[in-house]
Design a protein around this nucleic acid. Structure first.
Lengths: 262, 262
DNA sequence: CCGGCGTGTGAAAAAGATGTGAAACAGTGG
DNA sequence: CCACTGTTTCACATCTTTTTCACACGCCGG
């Protein structure tokens, strides 16, 4: 349907020079960004590469192969993993797939097939973001232009950094949905969130503050206590507060009508 | 990490009786809902089955195999497709994967591996499209939306906190069943309940009170003295009956058919 | 009708999450 | 190497939720 996979960022962990050479050649043909690693790098390095997919020969990792596979799957749940290894038993293949590998190819194999399998794995992963309409998405006073990695209000840029933009973009795509912190982190940062990480909160604050500067009468990002955040443009009703009432005043009275908006 | 893939709805299109028999046996072992089709059904029929995955032997579809594959991929982009066929060329496999198949297994193959591959495909699909099939569950005037971690009545949020929601959700899932306090605690809090802990009671009260605000004419959570609680939406009948009949009404109900409603 | 438990109720105390500002750290380009 | 921008980490303020308590009430068995 949409054969257009776009450029894929791929790493190959293998030291079989013949296989690597021939695969690399094909990779250059399709212009994917790729990198060959002769042995398993630390997980953090893989994180930093922001990959779409990984091709790995488990055989060369020795006894820690399963452990490595497991840790990679856990840390990068969004990464497509294709194991490409010599002879293996059914039990091994089943184990690898159960642990979290997406595909398992047996060498010798044709590089074109490896590519097709990587493509299939990545394709499925990307289905989630099929936003094709080139037009900017508008919400309240906001215009979010994916092509510019920026949000505007009345033609003026909110001056968001890349992460800030990606966060806002993700939230805005799921307008009205409550997204959990873990999921947000996973999808914006690209890997699993460590417990106690406050990055999402911090960035929400930054985005809020930048949006508020340009669009003071609207609120966009709502907190769901104990869960995460929800994007939904709403005219701010900070009306009233005439005088006497101390700010502290109960939020409770307002409850019932509109879900709590912080 | 991915311990629980949950039940998968699967269809197998194949007429190779030996393969099908052995695969079916394994399918029953894992309790997936499955169906075997001896030939390609109309796309609409596949749609109606609301499948998670499809295993198909392209060989038996003859010359229209590619066309069938293409149409299925287009019509059901969320469906995981595993081609399971006898001998094939690299070019055929690449073609199939490019068209939209998620995996391609060559017969003869071990049923366990087919299952593992189906599982991997479905796992990835669920990660990619996290919120599509999550229809709200309705009960009485209540709509419980898991994706929002919230319950609504007539579009209005009950403003449940996370634990309150989880409690309600658990009870609602077992609609009509009496759940013991210990089990409720175990499943909502995640660990064993200490003796004398009243948390469950307290939260039941909070949920009841929040639900009653929005849906005063229904009662949802019923107490079973000495046991626990049961979720079951019932129109409240305490209206009328101004004086004559004491609330205690028919003791006969307690007979076990219709437990006491408090 | 009474007493013993188990549950309902309201409020206070404790625990936990988020908001906030600023400093530490990392990456880039001069 | 420095200056600069952006990201991550930290400590603390603020606010919400969860837990704990003490007591009232209702169910059940004498």
């Amino acid at each position: 349907m949409t054969p257009q996979p776009g450029p894929i960022r791929l790493a190959v962990i293998d030291s079989d020079s013949g296989f690597v050479r021939v695969l690399t050649k094909r990779l250059e043909g399709v212009a994917w960004e790729h990198r060959v690693l002769p042995s398993a790098p630390p997980i953090e390095d893989l994180l930093a590469m922001r990959l779409n997919a990984l091709v790995v020969d488990l055989a060369l990792l020795g006894p820690q192969a399963w452990d490595f596979l497991e840790r990679v799957c856990e840390a990068l749940p969004g990464l497509g993993i294709v194991v490409c290894t010599g002879q293996s038993t059914v039990a091994q293949r089943v184990r690898g797939l159960r642990i979290g590998a997406d595909d398992w190819v047996t060498k010798p194999c044709h590089p074109e097939e490896v590519l097709a399998r990587v493509e299939a794995v990545v394709r499925r992963r990307k289905r989630a973001a099929p936003r094709i309409d080139t037009g900017p998405m508008v919400a309240g006073e906001l215009a979010i232009r994916v092509d510019q990695f920026q949000a505007f209000v009345g033609g003026q840029s909110a001056d968001l950094t890349r992460r800030e933009f990606e966060l806002l973009h993700l939230l805005a795509e799921g307008e009205g949905q409550v997204l959990q912190r873990e999921e947000i982190y996973q999808r914006v940062w690209g890997y699993a969130m460590a417990r106690g990480d406050r990055s999402v909160d911090v960035f929400v604050r930054k985005v809020r503050s930048k949006l508020e500067r340009l669009s003071p009468d609207w609120s966009y990002i709502h907190t769901h206590f104990g869960i995460g955040y929800r994007f939904q443009p709403e005219p701010r009703e900070d009306i009233g507060l005439p005088e006497g009432s101390p700010a502290g005043s109960s939020a409770s009275e307002t409850a019932g009508q509109v879900p709590r908006v912080q």
